[in-house]
Amino acid sequence: MGNPRVVLARRTLGSLRSEKTIVLALVIQLFIAGFSSFLVVGLVSLYDPGTANGDALTVSVGVTGNASSDVAATIADDDSRSVVPYPSQAAASAAFQRGDVQALVHATRQPGGRILAAATAPEGSFRTTLVVTELKGALSTLERERRADLDHRLERTPVDLPPDERSNPYFSFTYTVLLPLLAFLPAFISGSVMADSMAEELERDTLSLLRVAPLSLPEIVDGKAIALVGLAPAQVALWLLLLWLNGTHIANPLALLALVAGVAAVLVATGAALALRVGARREAQLLYSFVALAVFGVASLLPQSPQNLIARLAVDSPTTLTWGLLGVALTVAAASYTGLRWLAGGAET
């Protein structure tokens, strides 16, 4: 009860709550997550509107040229494409102009057996991406078939393609981008708030009031840090819960939260140390942003970057190295925190 650190930690949390900044922090994280998800959903739907809307659009392709039969066969191969043959390029072009077809392919067979496909897609329309994706799919199929036909002329045979099973296009994004973002953002914000909090106490000279109370500087740092380091995994736990409710399976949640707490400890220690050394908020905050960037930059040079660690743990593909690096991260966290306490102890005398 009487532990001054707990009292101080409670006060730090209390001020976050009373200023409603914690609500703002959560809103910001939600906004960033929503924004990046929107981006991906938007982009994926550009390539493949069927995944976003449920009803696939059909791209009709006007086909001309002496190899049009080969091309037409592969284009018609898929339900999402239809073929309209035209006798001449001029007729096809006119049809394209009118909007009767969304794409043109003029296919000609070359002497060496090669097929030349001159494709035309609509410019600056929001269907362009879809049209090109469909053309690419059809022509790739044609390429595979032609390769099989010309097998006798090849030294090595192409590897057979694995079956084409419909998979969630956002799967990889969720684990490798969205989740790391949601995991590291709270840690980064915690460090930033720590720097603010220390700089503010120094600038307003309220730190001396705390120190008049029977509290040493390391204890003051402890009190604030307990609150802020603890807050990061708490927020991430909330995001994990939301993702889980949304049907996203998250493996190794405890290891994930431990990693987040470790990263938060490193960043909070950095923020506090900079604020103590620099004193002024503007400089401390700027320096903190740069140092945090550098820390992430260096860490991403590791054999498994922090982002990758989160992804591997959450998707349940950790290797021995993953666990080893988690251990390293926690050790570094403990070391930086000890370093901070030593710095605070030194600053006191």
């Binding site: 394209f96 102009q97 909007g99 969304q102 070359q110 060496g112 057996g113 090669r114 097929i115 030349l116 496909a117 001159a118 494709a119 035309t120 897609a121 609509p122 410019e123 600056g124 329309s125 362009t128 090109v132 053309l135 022509l139 044609l142 390429e143 032609r146 390769r147 036909d149 010309l150 002329r153 090849l154 030294e155 090595r156």
Partner: peptide
């Protein structure tokens, strides 16, 4: 592959035109 015409039997050129 030495025989590029067989290795890449389809060559595409893509242009964009307004509709």
């Amino acid at each position: 592959e030495p025989d590029q015409a067989a290795a890449f039997p389809v060559v595409v050129s893509l242009t964009y035109r307004p509709q």
